[in-house]
Design a protein around this nucleic acid. Structure first.
Length: 414
RNA sequence: GUGAGUGUAGCUCAAGGGUAGAGCGCCGGUCUGUGGCACCGGAUGUUGGGGGUUCGAAUCCCCUCACUCACCCCA
């Protein structure tokens, strides 16, 4: 047997309804907030991610599916969507053609990681991005929309956490302050923290090692080192969130793993997901468009994990169901059943027939399992009389009606 | 990349050296033109794969693969 590649999985028919619900709500909510859908390729040049996502990130250093194509070009299965969207925005000069560049996309991403609950090698994201607006009111609108989307899916027990990681003019001072505050305590921290101190000191806040917590708890906060502009922006973001009545938690330990974030960062956490508890995460990335060769435009966005949204979705009893089963009794009715089934389908009814010749009982049993509301029975008696028998499964009642009335009756009954 | 746990029928799981089982599901019958309930019958396994120990391995040992959860990282 050939099995699915590790970390990938089939979404089976009984799960697809949940996925479509998530995708449908996502599209509707985005549309209501003025976003347009954009679809970008799944493969991009590798350099898009090394430049965009950032050379120092784990994603670029060890998680990318990269290969040389037959023409010798170095390409990568996208590990995240933002760089591709920025590329498209720049490549097609979308700020010229769109009044406001509010874009969203839905699709698969690929990261070579060890799979676990809520984490797969092929996973799916909703990405939402806005280019060209620097105002704090947009930060709040984006977060409020993310929470609304999750709320409309019926997902509860969530928490919005926000932070500000500053900008290129104030962050270096903070990194320096961090290292200074650590001082002689640094060698006492775990090996990962030692590494982080060298590559990206902010990420020390991500540490979950118990023994490190007292030391980390004494470290200064990024928000104490923000420059005036960043501090004003962050305060304004909070003011707008309150204006929207959007609850949030400040977390100075929320530092995200991608290199491009500036100022606002946020995550929406769920208590129902296990260790991978972020339903969505994002932030502002004011330097990214320029870094990827475009005009100097601010940007902000977030990515939501569709697997995680589906996982957190309340369970419902929706099941796969058709409307009608057309049963043939006796071989002479077989052709008439096929023709009638086609007529019902043209009329828009979800209709099943059995292509194997089976007893009436067997067909009824199948109809019952398929969960249809009505069974239309065609046998010698009905053929002779130009009628059909309609049986309503829930009540067991049945009646005979003229052949030419079947469609109308079934349509009004379902 | 690291650690732990688990791999037996479509699914959930028994059998812990001596003939591979149950429940559910599936197919059929009792009911030759009627589902659900009941009863009866039937099909389905290289016990994840490979090697070893043994007269004999689902069972013990080694290797390997996969899954799950956690670390890491992130959606």
């Amino acid at each position: 047997m050939i099995s699915a590649v590790r970390g990938t999985r089939d979404i089976l028919p009984d799960q697809v309804e949940r996925w479509q619900r998530v995708e449908g709500v996502a599209r509707r909510v985005c549309s209501r907030y003025g976003y347009y859908e954009l679809r970008t390729p799944i493969i991009e040049r590798e350099e898009l991610f090394s430049k965009g996502t950032g050379e120092s990130t784990d994603i670029v250093q060890k998680e990318m599916y990269s290969f040389d194509d037959k023409g010798g070009q170095r390409v990568t299965l996208r590990p995240e969507a933002t760089p591709g969207i920025v590329r498209a925005f720049v490549e097609h000069a979308l700020e010229q053609s769109l009044s406001v560049a509010k874009l969203f996309t839905l699709g698969p991403m690929f990261r070579y990681e060890r799979p676990q609950k809520g984490r797969y090698r092929q996973f799916h994201q909703l990405n939402v991005e806005v280019f060209g607006v620097a105002e704090a009111s947009l930060d709040a609108e984006v977060m409020e929309m993310a929470c609304t989307l999750v709320g409309e899916l019926g997902i509860d027990e969530t928490e919005l956490v926000i932070n500000s990681v500053g900008c290129p003019s104030c962050r270096p001072a903070f990194s320096e302050a961090l290292l200074k505050a650590l001082g002689k305590d640094l060698p006492k921290l775990c090996v990962d923290c030692q590494r982080r101190a060298k590559t990206n000191p902010l990420r020390i806040f991500d540490c979950k090692v118990e023994a490190d917590q007292p030391t980390i708890g004494r470290l200064p906060h990024s928000t104490d080192y923000l420059c005036d502009a960043c501090r004003e922006h962050f305060e304004a973001v909070q003011r707008y969130l309150r204006l929207y009545n959007q609850p949030f938690q400040l977390s100075h330990r929320l530092v995200r793993g991608l290199d491009y974030y500036t100022r606002t960062t946020f995550e929406l956490l769920s208590s129902k997901l296990g260790a991978q508890n972020a339903l969505l995460g994002g932030g502002r990335y004011d330097g990214l468009v320029k870094r990827l060769g475009g005009p100097d435009r601010p940007g902000i966005g977030f990515a939501a994990g569709l697997e995680r949204l589906v996982l957190a979705l309340p369970h419902s009893n929706d099941q796969m169901a058709s409307d009608v089963f057309v049963a043939a009794i006796g071989p002479s009715a077989q052709d008439a059943v096929f023709v009638l089934a086609r007529t019902l389908r043209v009329a828009g009814l979800r209709t099943l027939v059995d292509h194997k010749t089976r007893s009436a009982k067997a067909q009824m049993k199948r109809a019952n399992r398929a969960g249809v509301r009505h069974v239309v029975i065609l046998g010698d008696d009905e053929l002779a009389a130009g009628e059909v028998t309609i049986k309503t499964m829930a009540t067991g009642e049945q009646c005979k009606v003229a052949r030419n009335q079947v469609v109308d009756i079934l349509l009004s009954a379902s």
